Amino acid sequence: MKYFLCKYLPPRPDFLATMTTEERDLMKRHGDYMNELLARGVIVAHGPVIDPAGSYGVSLYQIADDQDIAAFTSEDPVVKHGVGHYEHFDMLTLKSRG
């Protein structure tokens, strides 16, 4: 297995306060996508981080050795529509309460 911390960076620091109607719809689809990956066991946890300098999202992935993390994050509706991007960080291990 491989483990990643992924950071979703929205297109602007005040994104949560200034989302357009289209962006709100995409964020709902983003949440649905993340919850689907959570239900499938691909994501261990995910959620928004409120930061005065600019909020962002965090997700913890646990994927098979032959899978590519970018294949998952590139399918996120917000990324597919050009509303932000992800940074991927390798983790040596991931332990969770199970």
Rank of each mutant, 00 (worst) to 15 (best):
M1C: 08
K2V: 07
K2P: 02
C6Q: 02
K7I: 15
Y8C: 08
Y8N: 02
L9I: 14
P10Q: 04
P11N: 11
P11D: 13
P13S: 13
D14W: 05
D14M: 10
F15L: 07
L16T: 03
T18P: 02
M19Q: 14
T20R: 04
T21I: 09
T21V: 12
E23C: 06
E23T: 11
E23H: 01
R24K: 14
D25K: 12
D25N: 08
M27T: 14
K28D: 11
R29Q: 15
R29L: 15
H30E: 10
H30A: 05
H30G: 06
G31F: 06
G31M: 06
Y33P: 00
Y33E: 01
Y33W: 09
Y33D: 01
M34H: 07
N35G: 08
E36V: 06
E36Y: 08
L37A: 01
L38P: 01
A39Q: 11
G41T: 02
G41F: 02
G41P: 06
I43W: 01
V44D: 06
H46Q: 12
G47L: 13
G47A: 13
G47Q: 13
P48I: 04
V49H: 09
V49W: 06
V49T: 11
I50E: 08
I50C: 09
D51A: 13
D51T: 13
D51N: 15
D51I: 09
P52Q: 10
P52F: 08
P52I: 07
A53C: 12
A53L: 12
G54E: 10
G54H: 10
S55H: 09
S55Q: 09
Y56F: 15
Y56V: 10
G57N: 04
G57P: 00
L60N: 03
L60G: 04
Y61R: 04
Y61H: 15
Q62K: 15
I63N: 01
I63C: 03
A64T: 11
Q67P: 05
Q67E: 13
I69F: 03
I69R: 03
I69W: 02
A70Y: 14
T73D: 04
S74H: 12
E75C: 12
D76L: 03
D76I: 03
D76K: 03
P77Q: 06
P77H: 03
V79G: 04
V79Y: 03
V79L: 03
K80S: 01
K80W: 07
H81R: 02
H81G: 02
G82H: 11
V83K: 03
V83M: 03
G84S: 08
G84T: 06
H85E: 11
Y86E: 04
E87I: 04
E87V: 12
D90C: 11
D90P: 14
D90K: 09
L92H: 09
T93W: 12
T93Q: 12
L94M: 08
L94G: 01
K95F: 15
K95V: 13
G98Q: 07
